[in-house]
């Protein structure tokens, strides 16, 4: 057989991010939307141009309306999320450590996790009234379950040998939880925080659409009633930015706390 070069066969199937393409395509999309709107291809009523949405946003910022809505939403979100996450971490740790807690907790949590928590809002309103408490409770409930599951599976992922190591040096149970279990479950807990944050945002918006005067959800709903689609979309943009900001904050936290990875 005559000599021939071995052909290269190993290419492809290894996607990489090409620089700048991401935000450039985003800009192009927004630009096309603006053009289509100005050219009259879509009615400004159905889909107002990005510039009009921005103008609505700036107007609300100027009048102080924006701050009022934002503060109301952030307060509910922070309170509900903190409450749900704290309880969730505690219960998740218990399930990760104790046989009794696992036997009781895991079936319960697995059964209740898929229940759409927004369906419980009317019940929570019956219990807690139409005010802040029922909204915060809905968000807390929605973040509680994914946090439990993320924490418990974070604990499960810690190699048993690390716990045995700690025991071999006679570390007290409290010290093992503090120095091995908690830091070992942190990656799982932070991954869970991303999930519970997006759930919290959905529940926040929904809860604010039911009987709230202020809040981004209320803003969106009222704008809809008044057929002010520019203000409506401004609210949606606000929610997106909020979601992105929370994601970025968790990312920064991960880079700081999980630098060892």
């Amino acid at each position: 057989m005559p000599a021939r070069e071995v052909p290269f066969r190993g290419g492809g199937f290894a996607p990489r991010r090409i620089r700048h393409v991401g935000w450039l395509s985003f800009l192009v999309l927004v630009g096309l939307w603006e053009l289509a709107s100005r050219a009259g291809l879509v009615s400004p009523f159905t889909l107002p141009a990005p510039s009009r949405v921005l103008a609505a946003l700036l107007e609300m910022a100027g009048s102080g309306e924006l701050a009022r809505h934002l503060v109301a939403s952030l307060a509910r979100l922070a309170l509900g999320w903190a409450l749900g996450a704290m309880l969730g971490v505690a219960v998740g740790l218990a399930i990760g450590i104790s046989s009794l807690a696992r036997s009781i907790g895991l079936p319960l949590v697995s059964a209740l996790f898929p229940v759409p928590k927004i369906a419980l809002l009317p019940l929570l309103i019956l219990w807690l009234g139409i005010g802040e408490a029922s909204k915060v409770a809905t968000i807390a409930l929605g973040t509680f379950f994914p946090t439990v599951i993320a924490t418990a599976s974070g604990v499960d992922q810690i190699p048993k040998s690390l716990v045995r190591m700690a025991q071999s040096f006679d570390l007290a149970p409290r010290a093992i939880v503090l120095r091995v279990i908690l830091p070992g479950a942190l990656p799982g807990m932070l991954a869970g925080a991303r999930i519970s944050a997006s759930i919290a945002l959905v529940l926040l918006t929904a809860a604010e659409m039911i009987g709230a005067e202020h809040g981004i959800g209320a803003l969106v709903l009222q704008a809809g009633h008044l057929m002010r689609s520019d203000r409506l979309l401004a609210g949606v943009v606000l929610l997106s930015v909020l979601g992105l900001a929370i994601g970025a904050a968790i990312g920064a936290l991960e880079r700081r706390l999980l630098a060892w990875r």
């Binding site: 190699p159 570390l171 120095r179």
Partner: peptide, 29 residues
Amino acid sequence: LVPLAYVFQDFALLPWRTVEANVALPLED
């Protein structure tokens, strides 16, 4: 401080601790 101490095949180091913090672990408290 500890009558019986182990050395493990898979090292059993805490990956989130530095070398010195890993060595300090059994001395804490």
